[in-house]
């Protein structure tokens, strides 16, 4: 299956409510992974934040390919389309960058609100 809009492999810091990352936390998160992305970061690359070890749960559910982009922000950056296997994010790439993303109705305290 192909999930066309997901945060598979992205650290949970990028998800609302925080909490530990899905895969039982390898690595403890490098500085890049821990930093919360700006809501307006069209130049950000989702691929830079992917952790290869964190895709196994999604894969176990039957997803083989996914477009990956954070849910938060208004302009969360550029997505990657990944095949969900490989020891490094680069090895998983089917297309990079895949698209620029604009999320409507993500409330933030920075301009623009909504």
């Amino acid at each position: 299956m192909i999930d066309g809009l997901s945060a598979i492999g992205l650290p949970a810091a990028a998800r609302p409510g925080g909490g530990p990352p899905g895969g039982g936390g390898g690595g403890g998160g490098g500085p890049a992974a821990a930093a919360s992305p700006s809501p307006l970061a069209p130049q950000a690359l989702a691929l830079d934040r992917v952790r290869a070890a964190d895709v196994s749960k999604a894969r176990d559910s039957g997803i083989t390919t996914a477009l990956v982009i954070p849910k938060e922000g208004v302009l969360p950056g550029q997505s990657a389309i990944l095949n969900l296997a490989g020891d490094r994010p680069e090895a998983m790439v089917l297309r990079q960058p895949a698209a620029l993303h604009l999320h409507m109705a993500s409330a933030t305290r920075q301009y623009p609100g909504r």
Binding site: P42, Q43, I69, L102, A105
Partner: peptide, 30 residues
């Protein structure tokens, strides 16, 4: 301005713009 480069890619048709729509009329807006 690094932030403008991806928009230029979008304008040139080299990168699609994916608009996540939450409200009904977000589709129209996009």
């Amino acid at each position: 301005a690094a932030a403008l480069v991806p928009w230029q890619q979008v304008l040139a048709g080299r990168l699609p713009l994916v608009v996540t729509c939450s409200l009904e009329n977000d589709v129209l807006r996009a």
